[in-house]
Design a protein around this nucleic acid. Structure first.
Lengths: 200, 200
DNA sequence: AGCACTCTCTACCAATTGGTAGAGAACTCG
DNA sequence: CGAGTTCTCTACCAATTGGTAGAGAGTGCT
């Protein structure tokens, strides 16, 4: 555990902290404590707190893009593809919640780092839009504006996967089984939202 | 403008700052500067930074609950009621974006203040769930688990209304006209997601 | 007038913040 | 061996943080 390169360990711990508590609520000293190291060690690898954050975002973006591009390359179609992606997002939410937490942190309105993340995921977004357009043209999805549809899909999927506090307020338990049920309910919801009149 | 009671001015400015930059990125000195006052004046009205935040959350929750309860009391049914609520949320997003920004801040996973907000909106959530159940029983909405459906609706509506950075990344312009288009597209999306087979 | 109350201020303070300077250990390579 | 390179450390520092103590101005009541 400790023999992983220090730089990587810093990035991993920082991702967790920034994704959970946010950027400004996480001090370098707190990170250093968690790492069993002095804060100057962190500043040796990353010239400033902001630079560390940027690196964390770059790293996380690469992970996210990899997950989605691998999935997209499998070339499923219509609802099946979307179902597969929902499954992936939920797997991420369960296995690496900090990753989606970081996305939430970075996409806060007015965030300066948002543009950085946007740059990384732009090609993936483009592909997703193209996919939606193609499927609509082929009559496998209800037709609508692909960008706006993508926004709705993004909000719904990421929200259902990450809005833990809203779920608590609604009395939805955080157990794994309940999460699976939530995912299936979400898929039914999306299926209905996306289906053409003919498709089941 | 300046003759509004100081306490209220503090709450208003704090709502804006907490809703935009977040709790820990907003110092009492920054608030005081914005108010043209010393920070000790703030600490006269609110014993601590956390107490001020709690008061802001209480205030915001009251506003939110009022908006929704007024709307709910009009007794629309089915999709019409949901459309009306979507319209209200978008109006809030345009007119008082800090309010939804604060909700986003407070519902961050692990937030300690989440419970406070949850306490305020619990009755409203209950009513919403009851409404959904009733409409399902009456065959006006596709049947499913009301709590999970509410979670999906919440995520989609709040997301589409507040995910400004994702919208930018998708190339969706922030103009008012575009916002209206987004709202209408969202309503089409929800209509499809919620309709029973028979309803148009 | 005199007292109490409300409000905002100045003056501090200890702790924490991100960051600089540079010493010293350990390893590599000639 | 000796010189560089890589890494982590100690020692500081100025600025900012949330918060305390208490002075003083204004208002209203008796």
């Amino acid at each position: 555990m400790t023999d992983r390169p220090t730089r990587e360990r810093i990035l991993a711990v920082a991702l967790g902290a920034y994704g959970t508590d946010g950027f400004s609520a996480t001090s370098l000293d707190a990170l250093a404590d968690q790492l069993g190291v002095r804060k100057q060690t962190i500043l040796y690898y990353f010239p400033s707190k902001q630079a560390l954050f940027d690196a964390v975002v770059d790293d996380a973006a690469a992970d996210l893009v990899k997950v989605f591009d691998e999935e997209a390359s499998r070339g499923l179609s219509g609802i099946q593809q979307i179902e597969a992606i929902v499954r992936h997002v939920f797997r991420l939410a369960v296995r690496r919640p900090e990753l989606l937490g970081l996305v939430r942190e970075v996409t806060r309105p007015g965030s300066v780092t948002a543009e950085r993340l946007a740059g990384h995921v732009a090609p993936t977004f483009d592909r997703a839009r193209d996919f939606l357009q193609r499927e609509m043209d082929a009559g496998r999805l209800r037709s609508s504006d692909p960008s706006m549809l993508l926004l709705s899909l993004y909000s719904t999927v990421v929200g259902v996967a990450t809005e833990l506090e809203v779920q608590r307020a609604l009395g939805l338990p955080p157990s794994l089984r309940a999460t699976v049920a939530r995912r299936q309910e979400l898929i039914r919801f999306l299926r209905a939202a996306l289906a053409t009149e003919s498709a089941s």
